[in-house]
Simulated assay, not measured.
Amino acid sequence: MQRRHFLSLSTLAATAGGFQNVFAAPDALAGWRQYEVVTKVNVAEQTALSRLWIPVPLATLDNYQRTLDVNFNAPGAESARMLTLPGSDVRMVAVKFADAGAPQSVEIVSRVATRDRAVDLGSSGHGGSTSATSLRPYLQATSLAPLDGIVKETADRIQAEAGHPKDTVAKARAIYEWIVENAKRNPATAGCGTGDVSYTLTSGNLSGKCADLNGLFTALARATRIPARDVYGVRVEDSSRGFKSLGKSGDISKAQHCRAEFYADGHGWIPVDPADVAKVMLEEQPGGLPKDAPKVRAARAMLFGAWEGNWMAYNTGADVRLPGSNRTEGFFMYPQGETANGRLDSLDPAHFAYTITSRKLA
């Protein structure tokens, strides 16, 4: 059996979740970059029952990303559907296979538009605000990021060392600068890290990768009563800002990357990425770079308040319950799967092979 599903922009407009046809005007894509991202997943360990859950890009992200269409094909599947988890922006293709002799693979083609995003933090803000009810989820603890104990103690210490700033942006900057000064990227960390904030703070070396370090920013911000969220996605193009380490094109199967945002009245959601500052220090040139190197200083300045548009966002979800399974994922950035023999390891290509490729569209 072959299952096909295509969501055009007009279809998204009628989908639960309020996706809007934001590109109705012919010139609406002016200044935006368009990418085609192809995800192929193959279950090598085929059994009579297999399930896959594959993230697809969120419909829209502030003034940064718009999803134009998603098209998927799952030959051999008993069922395949694209869905949005209730009360979240987590979208996925969920597939069930029930024949060990049939193909157990999925191909997803997504087309997205992105653009560089920067917030003028020197201004008084653009006015407008988001309701306290809408922001409440971004002040809550999660399974990976408790807001008490060492997290709260660290957050309070950072603000005390910064002189107890009153302004939200200044408070968030204190957290960002503390992470840049004290944390480091650990190349031995598997994938993007676990995102376990308590472990990061108690491990003794304050290191990890993007899910660890940007997840730390989000937790410390929330513990300071600043709404914040992790945004999970994948790099889709080389950096045009001169950073060899901050981009990837072509085969992006291992280019997953978590970013972060915090909310301030008058400015809205403000992008940050202290983990990528650590990445520049470690990877930009052989042997690494010191904190006072020009490229590190440039990254440090840019990544508090701005993102380059060479990355695609999947979702901002936390503690994601996979439909049809009793599994809950702390975050959802990789394809997930299970067979009759148990869970498949997203970081084990021998048994759970997938590829993700990207190309820029004219």
Rank of each mutant, 00 (worst) to 15 (best):
residue 171 K to D: 00
residue 38 V to D: 13
residue 261 E to H: 05
residue 233 G to R: 00
residue 150 I to S: 04
residue 284 E to T: 08
residue 4 R to Y: 13
residue 227 P to R: 05
residue 27 D to R: 07
residue 77 A to W: 04
residue 196 D to M: 02
residue 40 K to Q: 15
residue 175 I to M: 04
residue 299 A to T: 08
residue 218 T to E: 01
residue 242 G to H: 01
residue 173 R to E: 02
residue 3 R to K: 11
residue 16 A to S: 11
residue 178 W to T: 01
residue 12 L to S: 06
residue 187 P to T: 09
residue 324 G to Y: 12
residue 297 R to A: 12
residue 22 V to W: 14
residue 203 S to A: 07
residue 266 G to D: 09
residue 127 G to Y: 09
residue 98 A to V: 15
residue 9 L to V: 10
residue 152 K to Y: 03
residue 170 A to T: 01
residue 228 A to D: 02
residue 164 H to G: 03
residue 154 T to S: 01
residue 225 R to C: 05
residue 285 Q to G: 07
residue 34 Q to F: 08
residue 256 Q to M: 04
residue 251 D to F: 06
residue 6 F to R: 15
residue 255 A to Q: 06
residue 249 S to Q: 07
residue 75 P to H: 09
residue 129 S to E: 13
residue 294 P to A: 08
residue 236 V to F: 01
residue 166 K to P: 03
residue 268 G to L: 02
residue 60 T to S: 12
residue 221 A to Q: 02
residue 179 I to N: 04
residue 268 G to N: 00
residue 34 Q to L: 13
residue 207 S to W: 01
residue 79 S to P: 06
residue 267 H to S: 06
residue 80 A to F: 05
residue 202 T to D: 08
residue 225 R to Y: 05
residue 323 P to G: 12
residue 233 G to K: 02
residue 327 R to A: 13
residue 259 R to Q: 08
residue 94 A to M: 09
residue 322 L to C: 07
residue 326 N to Y: 10
residue 190 A to E: 10
residue 311 W to L: 12
residue 227 P to S: 02
residue 152 K to P: 04
residue 309 G to T: 14
residue 53 W to R: 08
residue 16 A to D: 15
residue 251 D to E: 04
residue 28 A to V: 15
residue 100 A to G: 11
residue 130 T to A: 09
residue 89 D to K: 06
residue 314 Y to I: 00
residue 248 K to M: 09
residue 167 D to W: 04
residue 141 A to I: 00
residue 34 Q to P: 09
residue 237 E to H: 04
residue 290 P to N: 03
residue 229 R to T: 00
residue 50 S to T: 15
residue 141 A to K: 05
residue 251 D to T: 04
residue 1 M to E: 15
residue 101 G to I: 08
residue 195 G to H: 00
residue 332 F to C: 10
residue 169 V to D: 00
residue 103 P to T: 10
residue 82 M to R: 14
residue 281 M to W: 00
residue 198 S to P: 12
residue 215 G to L: 00
residue 308 E to M: 11
residue 271 P to D: 04
residue 173 R to L: 03
residue 301 A to S: 14
residue 266 G to T: 06
residue 58 L to A: 14
residue 33 R to F: 12
residue 311 W to H: 12
residue 356 I to G: 10
residue 338 E to D: 14
residue 32 W to A: 11
residue 340 A to R: 14
residue 207 S to K: 03
